[in-house]
Nucleic acid binder design. Structure first.
Lengths: 355, 355
DNA sequence: CTGAAAGCGCTTACAG
DNA sequence: CTGAAAGCGCTTACAG
């Protein structure tokens, strides 16, 4: 029923290389070489072919080229949710790098489901993508194609991986609360540390790293950590869940004096939960966030958080993939995961006077 | 230099239909028909081919299929900036609809430059995309492929267009300020009403519609509108520019008592500008926003705005494109542009007591 | 119901 | 420096 061709002007069959070659009075082979900028073609001929192709508005058929070459100049980008600012920013940055190198990008959403991730990967394989950038939700399997991982890491690291300095970042937040503000009852609301039941575990998943970072930092500070002061959210880190968790945390008698949120959406949920309980931030409760919320300065109160490097993550992953394409191996002494360090941006939610 | 093949295991040439056919003991033609679910193949044969293909993990080569069929089952999505929440949400929704219908999506960023948009469109044509969804920045030209427009509209409307009810939305905001709060000096900070110099004009561009909507609503309310009370931002609607514009608006003697922001980022900039001038919102200045800012409830003050329909826009555009693929024309009496109506969400920045 | 064969539009050894 | 020809992996008239 689909009739795309009908949309085109009646006689205007799509232009092919043969048309360009005929118009230029050369063989198709020469036309192909000329357009590819091959040095094995006369400079004048090349100019002529170029100008004719340009005048006619010729664009080579990529399907034909891909079929013939056995590669597509396409890269698949697999993300849990493009509508999340973090992934959108990473995608944009990765795309800029890849497009500049002549690759185009196929984006697929997995909705954080391992099964959908596997389906997405198969689709991308059938597209013959030359490589993958994957923010895995636990469904990654080798497609026989170079893969670079972003943010969340599977057991096997493929051609490389780029992630935030999760442990170190959490430690910074905890130290600020403890060393500067003297908090002793610090609770945590963070992303879950494992995939859903029945899904592959993420050995170095972001959630686990942040959670372990928190435990370690609290331990290093010599503080007690009652189990009920550690709360994990749903995988999407939804504000709604964090709000409920914060309400629970603030209900008991051993109420924390500070909360570390393991993601910006969780921090926003915590602020709402505090408001629900009429607990004033920062006077009665300090709140700090791993990721910077959008417009952190305009929030009530402005939220102290680590700075964001979403774009940098995307850019680095793309660069790593391009390096893999060119056969540059990971240096043997290089750490398997490139870690992007994070700095603290102090605002008012922690109790500091703010900017 | 690129050697993707080297990544694959030595002997494991990628599986082809011929392999499946051989394993099933049928011809390639029969295997093809079986996998396509053609009724013109014996049910038992079909089952056998299916199970073998499944066991082998066969995925047909899309480049070959596209080349043969003359269509790709790919749709191009052209947006100014995927990292902007509005486009990210629209993209996600469009993608869900298109993937469910067997299409995949190529996303291209234009960075709001008409020239980059033209380049993107040519790339997509060379991909032989079957259709386009375009949030144009003024560079659209017909590629001989069905196109549906999203949010911003070019002179010629292609197969259809989906946009927000811009005029009506602005009118709602103005009426709320005037009729409920009695404002008489209402200023406007909005997106620009035309493309940059030297670029094609956008006849129905979002910026122009909102601006005209504002002028009309102020006129309908019988209020004066000094020219200096209308300020247009940069095309990206950056917070920084809006902040400067708000500072200017609030400096003069004829200071407005209310500001309508034509986009959420502009509203946030206006809040910052007011803070810079130590003008309290909403006590000394009411602020309302066209789009809802992220976490509007947590801002200081919570921002009164129209509700968002980003996903709906994407979904509708995708559905319209699928209809065009199936040859469903726009009904002759249908308006050329589907308008999504917007409702007011009252919070505190307008002067209302809030929720 | 099944198969042999042509052909989609490129690129690239292979000759010259 | 240029051309004729093969072939990438599918799908689909055309025969049977």
């Amino acid at each position: 029923v689909v009739d795309v061709a009908a949309h085109r002007d009646p006689g205007s069959r799509r232009l092919t290389l043969a048309d360009v070659a005929a118009a230029a009075g050369v063989s198709q082979a020469t036309a192909s070489r000329a357009l590819a900028g091959s040095p094995r073609v006369n400079a004048r001929t090349r100019e002529r072919v170029w100008s004719i192709a340009d005048r006619l508005g010729f664009e080579p058929n990529r399907a034909a080229r891909s079929l013939r070459r056995g590669r597509t100049s396409a890269v698949g980008l697999v993300v849990p949710d493009v509508a999340v600012a973090f992934y959108a920013a990473a995608l944009k940055a990765a795309q800029e790098v890849l497009e500049a190198a002549g690759y185009h990008v196929l984006v697929v959403n997995t909705a954080r489901a391992a099964r959908r991730e596997r389906a997405a990967l198969r689709t991308l394989r059938s597209h013959q993508v030359d490589g993958l950038i994957v923010a895995t939700s636990g469904g990654y399997e080798d497609m026989g194609v170079p893969a670079v991982f972003l943010d969340s890491l599977p057991p096997e690291l493929g051609e490389g991986a780029v992630a935030l300095a999760n442990e170190d970042g959490i430690a910074r937040l905890v130290r600020h609360l403890v060393e500067l503000h003297g908090h002793e009852r610090v609770a945590y609301v963070g992303p879950p540390d494992q995939a859903g039941p029945g899904e592959e575990p993420l050995v170095h998943s972001t959630g686990r790293e942040r959670l372990e970072g928190f435990r370690r930092a609290i331990g290093a500070a010599g503080l007690a950590l009652p189990p009920e002061h550690v709360r994990l959210s749903d995988p999407a880190c939804s504000e709604r869940v964090a709000r409920a968790l914060a309400r629970e945390l603030l209900a008991g008698p051993a109420r924390p004096s500070a909360i570390v949120a393991g993601a910006d959406t969780l921090a926003l949920g915590v602020l709402e939960g505090a408001r629900d309980r009429e607990v004033r931030v920062p006077d009665e409760l300090a709140v700090v966030s791993f990721d910077e919320p959008p417009y952190a300065d305009l929030l009530d109160p402005p939220v102290t958080s680590l700075d964001r490097h979403d774009s940098e993550l995307g850019r680095l992953a793309a660069q790593r993939l391009l390096a893999a394409f060119e056969g540059v191996p990971l240096p043997p002494d290089a750490p398997p995961v490139t870690r992007v360090p994070l700095a603290l941006k102090v605002r008012r939610s922690c109790g500091c006077p703010g900017a």
